[in-house]
Design a protein around this nucleic acid. Sequence first.
DNA 1: CGGCGGGTTGATACTGGTCAAGAAAGGTGG
DNA 2: CCACCTTTCTTGACCAGTATCAACCCGCCG
Lengths: 255, 255
Amino acid sequence: MATNSAALVRKESRFDQWLIPRLPPIANDAIALLDLKAGNRCFRPGQEIVSEGRRCNSVFLILEGFAIRYRILRDGQRQILNFLLPGDFAGVTNCHFGTAIFTTKTLTHATVAPIPLAKLMSLFHTHPQLAAQLFWLFAVGDAVVAEHLIAVGRRPATERIAHLLLELLTRLQAVGLADERSFRLPLTQEVISDVLGLSIPYVNRVLQQLRAASLVRISGHLVVVENIEELSALADLEQTYLKPLPIAELLSDHA
Amino acid sequence: MATNSAALVRKESRFDQWLIPRLPPIANDAIALLDLKAGNRCFRPGQEIVSEGRRCNSVFLILEGFAIRYRILRDGQRQILNFLLPGDFAGVTNCHFGTAIFTTKTLTHATVAPIPLAKLMSLFHTHPQLAAQLFWLFAVGDAVVAEHLIAVGRRPATERIAHLLLELLTRLQAVGLADERSFRLPLTQEVISDVLGLSIPYVNRVLQQLRAASLVRISGHLVVVENIEELSALADLEQTYLKPLPIAELLSDHA
DNA sequence: CGGCGGGTTGATACTGGTCAAGAAAGGTGG
DNA sequence: CCACCTTTCTTGACCAGTATCAACCCGCCG
């Protein structure tokens, strides 16, 4: 079972040291199985982990730090697709095309474990339950992007921002990187605007309103949600996708 | 290897009959392995295959017909996330949460093969390469949604529409359901607007411009791209994600 | 024949973009 | 600890892409 290898990892304290977040079991499994301690790579803020147009045969398990996946358009505009938090796999989509179609760039210092796609796939033969867990992670990732698309496609700016902040709060809580109402993350207004498809000045104005209404405060790299209830009412956030059932329960249910 | 079972399926002509599209190998594999001929379900246009809020423990392989995945917001607005074409798996994300968070609804008559998630997962033990192929399909699906998000987030209406039509053309060609410049699909202006986050009247006006410029013509359920070059120039379409490498090639490459 | 889902149009409003510039804030070397 | 530079944040004036609302029309189906 998953718990064996996960427990195994937890014992190794040096490794645990910077494994601050509570990675999902799949991540711990992968770490144990692939001996990921060996090939870790560290990135500085703003470095590209995966670059659009370049070859890519590996996925990257984020162990520490934050990253974004995005595309730069012809006219120089940027659309950020999603945030990559500790425990997420980066580059999964990219590596299936041989050459990357999106760029993944670090937002902070980050520790990342590269896993060659071939190695991962070959593990399926010996550890089939790993595949199932990966699917589960994928499904969550897909849901995050889908919710994001809904926000960008159909919600006004204020709701989008509220939605984004609550999504991040919830996801970060899940990995132990946020407390009840706040988290640290270098969320510049430029980043927010590129995530949500807005302009920087407009994001600024909306943020001022939210601040004036005592709903959120972003100062430096600290994001504080001052009134979760009201902000949630604004955001209309789907909670299910951020708190998915453990895979075991899914398989035991009946149609 | 994958080809065995795929070839096996192709021989069965009665089954092949309505398997007009060239399903990807994974689909044919699944069909063979799971004996999907047995449990097929037929849907009429406008029926829900998966309903938001209801339990969901299966994925659905689309064998014939078209569907959309969407969410209805509080205020009644709809955001369509993606189109499901023959060969696509529907409900994959949903079934990982126990209860569906999106709705999948038929656009035409459709034939669908339900696959209990548990059944699929258990196959990984006996057919590990199936998992790898499913990942590949997933990656393509993710890329489609991601490109969609980019269009909605950062592109003006005309480009969005051009992008959408070319995406559909290319995807349909891949399964043998479109010729060089046209395809049939009940693409109402309401659907287009809900896919792209626009209003119906505006879609109408943009469509008129495109028609006036002899770029596209939508009449009834027939979509004809009259000038692929110009439309492509407009759309700035990423082709890579619609023509991914076969999985074998990916695994043989080196970092 | 009537109803209805689509498509089309016009008038009008507004959300959010653009441009331009300045003020803070944060980081860095001396 | 300060001067300086860069990044980020703010603000204002103005503009434009799209939304809304409200008809009306058309073709199809029962």
